Simulated assay, not measured.
Amino acid sequence: MAKGLSALLSDSDLVVSKKVASFDGVKPVKVSSIKTNPYQPRTEFDQEALDELAESIKIHGIIQPLTLREAENGSYELISGERRLRASKLAGLDEVPAYIRNVDDQRSLEMALIENIQRENLNAIEVALSFQRMIDDCGLKQSELGERVGKNRTTVNNYLRLLQLPAPIQSAITLGKITMGQARPLITIEDEDFQLELLQKIMNEGLSARKVEELLKEANKTDGSFSPLETYREDMRIEEISLRGKTKVPLKIKVNAIDKGFVSLPFQSEEELQKLLTQLGLDS
């Protein structure tokens, strides 16, 4: 007589044990000896979902082994499977099945990121931060990064540009209050106050990404005259040219909003810096 589904699942511990034994480098590992992954790209874990997974693990065991790498003093570092590890602790497991991989920091970061992206468990800001970390820590170019994670360069760039948004907008994406599609049009806005104004409008009215783009197009239309911000930017461009002529210094004026911005003095070497300071009368 055929077994029911619940009966088959209750035997999954045995099935996993047999599969674990058949893989080279896979073995049961003490939960207490596993350290969390410092390169874990995921920062948000739903507690209710963890509790549900823990209950499932109590009944059926862990279906998919964790992925670890050896660390110091006989301990292990988690590469992927932090959700399963957390749920296993909640379920009271002493041991978990794990693949043991011999990888360096760069490969560990890549594996953790790729697993989460493939499972679509990361929000857009977590993906963007992970991409930026791979660029910073691993010295990858955007095109190389795209190849590693199976994304084209445009997609990688779209994620990275989200990090240019003000913190409240990034937070709204992380919390799922707005989508990446709704947020992307806001990247083109230089006025932060206007960005945040649109953020509230998106959340309050549930505007689609297309509607946000339409609002921006309308805002950019003029009747032949400049908006106050555009007029101010034009005034600052003229002021920039005037100051360059007077000081002989290649300064640049960046306008963020009316009466807000900063002045920068670019230089390419220590010699150029000293020359700039001399021209400004600031050399010691």
Rank of each mutant, 00 (worst) to 15 (best):
I63L: 11
S56Y: 10
R153S: 09
N73L: 00
R148I: 10
V212G: 02
L198V: 06
K246I: 15
E270L: 15
N73K: 02
V31M: 03
P97V: 05
Q182W: 04
I117Y: 10
N102Q: 05
Q170P: 05
I63M: 12
S269M: 14
D259P: 02
D193V: 13
V20M: 06
R153W: 12
F194G: 00
R42L: 02
R69F: 00
I62D: 04
N102H: 07
G92M: 04
T179D: 09
R69Y: 02
S171L: 14
L162T: 07
E72V: 04
L68S: 09
F267S: 06
S10D: 03
Q106N: 13
Q118M: 13
A183P: 02
R107N: 10
P38N: 14
I34A: 00
E214S: 12
L280A: 04
N37K: 12
S56A: 13
C138P: 08
K254R: 13
D193K: 12
K89G: 01
V255N: 01
E55Q: 14
Q200Y: 06
G206E: 01
I100R: 07
T154N: 05
N121W: 14
V96K: 01
L85E: 03
E214K: 13
E240M: 08
G245N: 11
I57H: 00
G25M: 01
I34Q: 00
I178F: 11
L207V: 13
F194M: 06
R153V: 12
T188V: 12
M111I: 12
V96S: 02
Y159L: 01
M236D: 09
L175Q: 15
D104V: 05
I100D: 04
N256K: 09
A112T: 07
T179S: 15
V263K: 07
I135V: 11
L163V: 11
E77A: 07
I238L: 15
K211D: 12
P28K: 06
T188F: 07
E110H: 08
L113S: 05
K177I: 08
T155Q: 07
V149P: 03
M111Q: 10
S88Y: 02
L215V: 07
M1N: 06
E190I: 09
G245E: 09
I202N: 00
L5P: 09
D137F: 05
S269N: 13
S10N: 07
V127Y: 02
E48I: 15
L277W: 00
F262K: 07
E239V: 08
E234N: 12
P65K: 11
V29W: 00
Q274T: 15
Q40P: 03
V255T: 13
A167S: 12
P185D: 10
G245A: 10
E271N: 10
I187M: 08
P166S: 00
G81D: 03
V212S: 00
G176R: 10
D13E: 11
V16D: 01
S10C: 08
E239F: 11
I34W: 01
T154I: 08
E48T: 15
N152V: 15
A172E: 02
E271L: 09
M236A: 14
A172G: 06
Q195S: 04
D94T: 04
E190R: 10
S22R: 12
Q170F: 09
F131P: 00
K19S: 11
L207W: 02
L265I: 10
K252F: 09
R133L: 15
D105Y: 09
